[in-house]
């Protein structure tokens, strides 16, 4: 199964940085499907889900950015109360810590993007609970 990959970029926390990074992605003709930016003090980390993570990585690296690829879990849950809770409780029961998590609803489908330390085990556990873990292709065609 093709895991969902994000491209992560290290950048200074000052005006214009997001514009510079997204310009590079736009020039590489990459479509951004999802983004998160975390900043602490003088720097921040931007993470993008794009249609070609490897290409994004290379384009950013070429421009001198410190960048890396991250594997994450994209889980589809039902768009109703208690859905996130079910996922969280299931992972908690198996002592798996959620690092960074975000979620969105697209076309009536609720998607959670999870960063966990033990990705393979988390995937297995979620699948045992009959939760749908999306492949890269599914995630890009939502």
């Amino acid at each position: 199964m093709n895991a969902v990959k994000l491209v992560a970029v290290f950048a200074e926390n000052k005006p214009g940085q997001t514009a510079r990074v997204t310009r590079i992605l736009a020039h590489a003709n990459l479509n951004i499907r999802w983004v998160t930016i975390a900043s602490v003090g003088a720097f921040g980390v931007m993470k993008f889900l794009v249609d070609n993570a490897q290409l994004a990585y290379e384009a950013l690296k070429h421009e001198g950015y410190v960048t890396t690829l991250l594997e994450v879990l994209a889980v589809e849950v039902s768009d109703q109360p208690g859905a996130l809770h079910a996922v969280a409780e299931c992972l908690a029961f198996h002592q798996i810590n959620l690092e960074n998590t975000s979620g969105f609803v697209a076309n009536q489908r609720a998607i959670l993007v999870l960063e966990v330390s033990d990705l393979a085990r988390a995937r297995e556990i979620l699948q045992q609970q009959n939760l749908r873990v999306l492949t890269r292709e599914e995630m890009l065609t939502l």
């Binding site: 992560a8 290290f10 975390a38 602490v40 980390v45 410190v66 960048t67 690829l69 690092e99 960074n100």
Partner: peptide, 15 residues
């Protein structure tokens, strides 16, 4: 300067 080898994509690691 941060080098690529020192970057795992997580803010927490950098801190």
């Amino acid at each position: 300067e941060l080098a690529e080898a020192g970057f795992g994509g997580q803010v927490e690691q950098l801190i």
